[in-house]
Design a protein around this nucleic acid. Sequence first.
DNA 1: CGGCATTGACAT
DNA 2: ATGTCAATGCCG
Length: 358
Amino acid sequence: MGTRMQARLAYFGVGVLAGVGAGAGYWRVYKQLELSDSLESRHKNTELPLEQRVFKYGRPESPFSSRTYTSHSVLYDHVHKVPLWSAEVITPQGISGPAKRGNSRFQPDPTILTRFSSGNADYLKSGWSRGHMTPAADCKHCQSAMDDSHYLTNIVPQDFNNNSGYWNRLEMFCRDLAEKYPAVYVTSGPLYLPSPSLDDGGKKFVKYQVIGAGKVAVPTHLYKVILAETDDSSDPASQPPPSLGVFVVPNKPLGDEELTSFQTTLTELETLCGISFHSKLDRSNVSDLCKTDKCKLMTTLELKQFVYSLRLGRAKSEEQIGEILDEAKKEGLERDSVIAQSAAQQGNKLNTSATNGS
DNA sequence: CGGCATTGACAT
DNA sequence: ATGTCAATGCCG
């Protein structure tokens, strides 16, 4: 305490020598010293451990614990108002079922304090869509899972075209994997990656838009970690290695880019987002998903055909069917292919309702 | 499959 | 007047 006073006196001395504010300055510094002395003498708990002293009025709290819902788990980012990650395990049973998307609505997660939560108003007319991280289509097993997936803790602002296009096809790819592997573990989330500034000498900046009154962050990229189990038998040593695929996809309109062009390593992703994934996984014993599998997404044209076949299934009149088929043909689709796929979808629908119904 | 906008009923 | 909700139709 003596040394601090000396320091102040020394500073005062320099001030006087410099001739700054002679009279009034002297008085001000004198009063300040007097005040400091009395404050120091009034702080009596200097003998307590620092832990007790600095957090006397409570420790800074970031409510960073994940929450598990009916069929997915989320760690929420209270700063950006989107998930940090959303995790699920896809199985054939989980992705077929009676739950309907139309019965669920996007809504704030009731477990998040309002001032930390995004709202639908932030998204509407923002120019960005509400993109599921754990997809709604993976939550068809029961309606509560479907409802949970619509909590805004599972949603990020996503480019419309990307959401219904490339990312949609990537999600379909994951569901297809679930038909080939006993279990597919998928973790998805947003990224805010630096990019070189054109008007500032190529220096790198992290730049992202925020939308709505809640200032919800629009990620520059989205990631997906896909871990496909080849065997779920009890003895891990005898199992073939699981397949791992990690992808970082820009949050913008995309076409028929190769999925492998967005592939990266798990370690690289981890350094990008500061999160460790699958800590119990033996990384020396995993195979590249894009080697064991083709990592081929449905093409944009194939998705278009898929969409038209869905519309065909909902058509209410012969006349409407004709209109849809005409329009599909203008888009470069084969009439018979659309009809055939529509029929196949109806068949699937009957099968799933038969296995889950009555 | 992925979304949005409009509408009408109802409450504030 | 203004906001919420669910049903419906629309588009990519």
